[in-house]
Simulated assay, not measured.
Amino acid sequence: MSPEPDARRPAGRPRAAILSRDRILEAAFALADERGGDFTLAALARALGVRPSALHHYFSNKDDLVAGMRGQLTLRVGDPGFGDLPWHEAILPWARSYRETLGRHPGIIAALATLPVDGEPESIADYDRIAQAFRRDGYPEHRIVPAIVAVESFIIGSALDALAPDDNLRPSDGASHAPTLEAAERAARRHSAEQGQSPATAAFEFGLRALVSGLRAAASAESE
């Protein structure tokens, strides 16, 4: 006669999914997409079906969690070749990937943009890789961080702009007092359509190249 099964150890997979750092981050992104970056750890714990104390085994506080989210996004952006390409070439695909990655999670952009990178290894490694490319290519050392900040600020703004209506700069009907702006806005939308791009993407591409060209020119003028 076979022994009776132990009722304390039910067969099959456990009912509750095992908590992990990756699972917490995935849930945090989903919550931020729904509620924005001001969600609480208590709300995140409820979404995961665990006690808030369980999260502290992985993240000490909300800032630590947001830092982990930024590290995750940094890994998704990737490295387009700062070790091999000139900085002004590598930064173009990096900026495009960065904008696209941020655009998937707009709710967390403000929190990511205002939190220091200290203690977040993925972002620090990424910024250092970019700084090395600038320095290798002879960029003035005291201008490297301002240049990175300028490009990143533009990317963040462009990621938010991509969420706005395509005609968000068009004057309202009957705004005859702004004929120049109205004509320019119409021309911009027509040109972006001819290029097969949305107005936001066309503006981003134009602004990115203009910004990078300006940063190169400013460095050259300073070194003369």
Rank of each mutant, 00 (worst) to 15 (best):
R96L: 02
R51M: 04
A147M: 07
R51N: 07
R70K: 15
D137P: 14
A150P: 03
E122R: 15
H56F: 15
L163K: 04
I144R: 00
A95N: 13
V149F: 09
F59H: 10
G103I: 10
M69W: 14
I156T: 07
A147F: 11
R136D: 05
I144K: 02
D79T: 14
G71I: 11
E141W: 03
D79S: 07
P116L: 06
I156W: 01
D167K: 10
N61P: 01
L169V: 12
T74Q: 05
A164C: 05
A45K: 13
D128E: 13
R104H: 10
H57Q: 10
L169F: 11
R143A: 02
H105Q: 03
V151A: 06
F82Q: 04
A162R: 10
G157D: 00
D166R: 08
D137T: 14
E141Y: 02
H142T: 00
T101K: 04
S97V: 13
D128W: 15
W87A: 06
S172R: 14
G37T: 14
F39N: 03
G49K: 13
A90S: 08
A147H: 09
W87E: 04
F154K: 01
G49I: 12
Y127H: 11
L73P: 04
P52N: 09
S53P: 00
H142E: 02
D63A: 14
I108Q: 00
V145R: 10
A110L: 05
R35M: 01
S158R: 11
W87V: 15
D173W: 11
A42T: 14
R70Q: 15
A90V: 11
P86H: 08
A111K: 09
H56M: 11
A47P: 06
L65C: 08
D79M: 09
T114A: 03
P116E: 01
P121R: 02
L65H: 10
R51T: 15
A125F: 04
I155H: 02
I144M: 03
A95C: 12
F82V: 10
T114Q: 01
F39D: 03
I155Q: 05
L75V: 13
D38T: 15
R99Q: 07
D161M: 09
A90T: 06
A125D: 15
A133L: 06
R96V: 04
A113T: 14
P106W: 12
G78W: 13
V151M: 01
G107F: 08
L75W: 09
P52A: 06
E89G: 08
P52V: 12
L55E: 09
D38E: 13
D79C: 10
L44N: 05
A45C: 11
S60E: 14
A110N: 03
V117C: 01
A164T: 06
P165F: 01
V151C: 05
W94A: 09
L65P: 11
H88R: 12
L73F: 06
R104I: 07
L75Q: 12
V66E: 00
D167P: 12
G81H: 08
I91C: 08
T40Q: 00
I124S: 05
P171K: 07
V117P: 02
P93A: 05
Y127P: 00
I124F: 03
L160W: 04
Q132W: 05
